[in-house]
Write a protein that binds this DNA or RNA. Structure first.
Lengths: 239, 239
DNA sequence: AATAGCAACCTGTCATATAGGTTTCAAGGG
DNA sequence: CCCTTGAAACCTATATGACAGGTTGCTATT
């Protein structure tokens, strides 16, 4: 017909994939920024000369990856960077046992030793305060594991944000889902209040190092923190 | 008020999102592994009591994220870990200027200093050979930038694979698309054959360090390599 | 000029239809 | 008895049309 992406040799990738290509291509060639509107489904339907079904599935796919935002009645818009797709990939890897929790922790350790160092160098005062605040709230709620966990996650995400590199934020946040599934297990191995408070102290040390702007010290504390966390998971028998 | 993210009570996440949840939940609860078949669209339609359109869009969304494989006539199957979604997110961040090439390179440097150290420790002989082979092919084709680039990318992916942590592979591979878009720019700043061969020599040094199993040396060479690459991009005026 | 309300446009979902690919299984030939 | 072949059953890919409800912008009324 008039399919511009039809290339001999390659089996047809399907009309939907073609449509997805067309949409992302449109974003690129028009230089669209987050919030900018995309063509309506009807317009795309005419432009690509396919049924609305195809166009819809393409839009929906991009929406699932959080590359665009959709809502009823309004045109789809270019989305802000979001961790949705990434965390789904990681979750998928975990649930289908293609990756292990330990492997994720190794990656987290690698990345967060860098984010914490960057945070120590580049944090604003507000960011340093937010990080310290999360640590403080962990201590104040240490009797309630669920809450401690959420502040723990917020703590690490705040550090990533303070690194001022959104790619780090993206990855760290993508791992948060895994953390939510394993955190409590590690916490339980720290049976005594003393152990648990010691772990919280580790967070405070990190926050302090960021506050005084010592990247090396911050990275050291972070490494220590991860080593203990991994040990806790090992003790709990997590492969 | 335009915050469709999270509102207490969750008015209606949409039928498609619900269906996506149901499918991923099915994978989890049934403990499906890559290659295992999912229920047919018709079955899902009955189970969720929605139209086939909704189910289809859900399947298609998961397919776009490469969590499942679809093809005509066959049932959808659970997919092997794939970098598709991640690289689209990164690409999207780049094209909409929400992240910069430099930020990606900082993440790559952080991650690859670790993968190369792990590779030095854990590589099989075959993996070491594959890595060295990529470096050799870079040299042999150094008159043809496009080809050098592909072997460069293969080189880094091979190192990630030799780290024996698929999460690293996932991330490194996700960045390959960005590399394809910027690599040539860096190459051009290395105007003389001498400069270009020096850069290839850097790869050979890394391969050698992996071969002899020296993680510290390997990481050092990798850091050097990235520092030079970033400098090359800076010289080329890439923000 | 401000506002209420209507009209046009848009997405969300459903039902139905056709084309074409895949699997299965049994009948027929060796 | 085994192997091939072909058709039936099931599945996905795409198209079309319909209707409900949300959003936006214009218009006519106040």
């Amino acid at each position: 017909m008039q399919d511009p992406t039809e290339i001999a040799g390659e089996p047809s990738p399907g009309l939907v994939s073609t449509a997805i290509q067309a949409i992302t291509q449109h974003i690129r060639s028009e230089g669209l920024a987050p919030g900018d509107p995309l063509p309506s489904e009807a317009a795309m339907t005419r432009q690509l000369n396919v049924s609305r079904t195809v166009v819809r599935e393409a839009f929906r796919s991009l929406s699932a990856m959080r590359l665009i935002d959709m809502s009823a009645g309004r045109r789809a818009t270019v989305a802000k960077l979001d961790t949705g797709a990434m965390s789904m990939v990681i979750e998928h890897g975990i649930t289908t046992q293609q990756i292990s929790v330990h492997q994720v922790y190794d990656v987290r350790r690698t990345i967060e030793m860098r984010t914490v160092a960057l945070a120590a160098l580049r944090r604003t005062d507000a960011e340093a305060a937010a990080i310290a605040q999360s640590a403080r709230l962990m201590r104040e709620n240490f009797k309630n594991p669920e809450i401690v966990m959420e502040y723990d996650i917020a703590f690490h995400e705040a550090i990533a944000a303070a690194s001022h590199n959104p790619v780090f934020s993206l990855i760290v946040t993508a791992f948060s889902g895994v953390t939510r599934r394993t955190w409590v297990i590690g916490w339980r191995t720290r049976s005594s209040d003393e152990d648990q408070l010691k772990m919280i102290k580790g967070h405070e040390d990190i926050a302090e190092a960021i506050l005084i702007g010592d990247p090396r010290l911050a990275a050291e504390h972070m490494a220590l923190h991860f080593d203990k966390s991994v040990k806790a998971l090992l003790d709990a028998g997590i492969a």
